[in-house]
């Protein structure tokens, strides 16, 4: 119904306009102002080739995607059972789990990082305990390396995954599970053939959110990572803060944006191709 669609568009127009203004506006302004500094299109092109073709940027992009990918895997592995526990919990237990999940948002990144130091440091609680128990002879390197980045990012990103999965799991009709059981499926088969597929769109959405947010991380890797754990957003931030090199920052931002948008496109395709999934 073209008229109904137009009507809906008209109703949404103020919101869309506001979103455009608030979200797209600043990025557009920044990109045009920054790239404008370079002058003509051919000059922009030259700078783009030089910046994006450099080994440094390529290494940082690879690094970024790889870290975000690992974090997504870890977050998914931890988040799925936790979200499931949340769907099963009632009353006080529910509140307790929820508070634990949302705790990262009540502390500043700085406070959190010092807490990690106390816990994960060479002389931190975990190492002290393991050394004391004789499990290890040398302290484990749990921070200021890739492990630290993954621990730190997992902690911050876990809630996005859990809350996304939670709503997907809550939407699963328990009668379908019962039906599967009644048709002879074992608990594992009920999970594998019914519950998991029905929450798959939540898994994909959660993974996508985590990955996209993860790709843009710079504080946690800077605080928890080692010398080589450089992510693209850290480079962008340095170009802005240290050298005020807006054009280069803008070009790198475009790369980040391209990665994010192409992932979103993949997700969109994925969900469109599966009519069985409630859209």
């Amino acid at each position: 119904m073209p008229l109904g669609r137009l009507g809906a568009l008209l109703l949404l127009a103020p919101t869309l306009l506001l979103m455009l203004l608030i979200f797209v506006g600043p990025i557009g302004w920044f990109l045009s102002a920054a790239l404008g500094e370079l002058g003509s299109l051919s000059e922009i092109w030259e700078e783009a080739v030089a910046t994006l073709g450099s080994r440094t940027i390529l290494a940082a992009i690879l690094n970024t995607n790889w870290i975000a990918f690992l974090v997504t895997l870890v977050v998914l592995a931890l988040g799925y059972p936790l979200a499931y526990a949340l769907t099963r919990a009632k009353g006080l237990a529910f509140t307790a789990i929820l508070v634990c999940i949302l705790l990262p948002y009540f502390t500043s990144v700085i406070v959190r990082t010092y807490a990690w130091m106390v816990l994960l440091g060479r002389n931190g609680l975990i190492n002290q305990a393991l050394l004391g128990l004789g499990v290890i002879q040398q302290p484990l390197e749990l921070m200021y390396n890739r492990t630290g980045v993954i621990i730190g990012m997992t902690y911050v990103l876990l809630p996005y995954m859990i809350l996304t999965l939670y709503s997907a799991m809550k939407a699963v009709d328990p009668r379908l599970l019962q039906a599967a059981e009644g048709m002879g499926a074992s608990p594992f088969e009920v999970f594998r053939k019914v519950f998991f597929p029905l929450t798959l769109h939540g898994v994909v959405a959660g993974a996508l959110i985590v990955f996209i947010l993860g790709v843009g991380f710079f504080i946690t890797p800077a605080l928890m990572g080692g010398p080589g754990d450089i992510m693209i957003a850290m480079l962008i931030e340095r170009e802005i803060e240290l050298t005020q090199n807006w054009p280069v920052a803008a070009l790198m931002t475009l790369v980040l944006l391209a990665v994010t948008l192409s992932l979103y496109a993949v997700y969109h395709r994925f969900s469109a191709e599966r009519p069985g999934l409630a859209a």
């Binding site: 940082a60 340095r238 050298t243």
Partner: peptide, 15 residues
């Protein structure tokens, strides 16, 4: 020279 140092630093740290 900060711009140059920054660039070189990135190359050095990621290399």
């Amino acid at each position: 020279n900060r711009d140059r140092v920054n660039r070189q630093w990135s190359r050095w740290i990621l290399g």
